[in-house]
Design a protein around this nucleic acid. Structure first.
Ligand SMILES: [Mn+2]
Ligand SMILES: [Mn+2]
Ligand SMILES: [Zn+2]
Ligand SMILES: [Zn+2]
Lengths: 160, 160
DNA sequence: TCTTAAATAAGAATTATTCTGAGTTTATAG
DNA sequence: CTATAAACTCAGAATAATTCTTATTTAAGA
């Protein structure tokens, strides 16, 4: 069970290229910098999330990780996600009722969700500069904000 | 069980004032206009939601309605909310993981959520005019959007 | 290498929501 | 004012997502 993380840190086998190793090292350093122990399960969850941009659910991550060899239990995927969220390495994205999605992109950004296929896409922060939060009711102290845009993605728009 | 809706339509008793009646009539008309049958339970759910601005959960509505006499079952509160949402008379507000809140304010508006006490407050649509959706990646067809602002409310800001 | 606080995992528990099916009610048409 | 049929309600069962419990294992520092 430990193999994977070990392997990523040890100098790789024949087919592995250097960039994957470097990425693994970066993940290890990131976790350590947050005082999180580097376990194979936690590593796998975070690496998986960093590797995708589709804002998966816990269930989808679990399925993806265990699709070949068993890697993490359900409970561990949930607690890994909580730990990663608690230290600010991942955030949750709430756009549908009863569905909690996760995102390793912690830079401020907005989201677009296709009403037809459910696809979620990041919108760069710079896309919406003009937002003037000063005009909010006085008394409210703003810490952060985010825009949610809904509509049709390319594919679904064409199909309809 | 039927009493409440009947009473609201019949010419009122001694203590009732006219505006409550008118409000009840308006609700009845609104439901009819959406081709929803006017049942006491559905009326109660919608009236309750129109009467508050705190974006309650289904559970909170249920509790509120049944606090004196039994009014609606849990299943009925859920299906009433679904029916009201399906015809566009209420919308759901998703700001916390695993919590679905409801809102009878269907005019476009934004939300503020206090990170400390969880209070949710509406932000008028006009507050943020400057948002330029044209700058979105071409290919995405925008249908609507909403801003979520997080921070501290008056009370929590003062207390901290 | 030793030590131990932290993490994992299987399965039970909890919680929110939906489903089922039998009985009731609303709205309408005669 | 009835009769009728589709729509609705409700109790309780079912489902699904997430959390909890606890015994066992492990990462990482001394
Ligand atoms: Mn994102
Ligand atoms: Mn609102
Ligand atoms: Zn789509
Ligand atoms: Zn507050």
């Amino acid at each position: 069970m430990l193999k994977m993380a070990r392997k990523s840190r040890a100098s790789g086998s024949s087919v592995e290229n250097g960039s994957m190793e470097k990425q693994a090292d970066r993940i290890v350093q990131t976790l350590k910098s947050k005082k999180l122990r580097v376990t194979p399960q936690r590593f796998a969850v975070y690496a998986n999330l960093l590797d995708r941009t589709d804002h998966p659910t816990a269930e989808q991550i679990l399925h993806d990780l265990n699709q070949n060899a068993p890697t993490s239990s359900q409970a561990t995927v949930y607690t890994s996600l909580q730990a990663l969220r608690d230290v600010g390495l991942v955030r949750e994205v709430l756009l549908e009722e009863g569905v909690c999605r996760y995102d390793a992109n912690i830079a401020p950004h907005h989201h677009f969700r296709c009403k037809s296929c459910g696809k979620i896409e990041d919108i760069a922060w710079e896309q919406f500069q003009g937002i003037d939060l000063q005009r909010l009711r006085s008394g409210l102290k703003v810490e952060d904000y985010e825009l949610t845009v809904r509509g049709l993605c390319d594919r679904c728009d064409r199909a309809s």
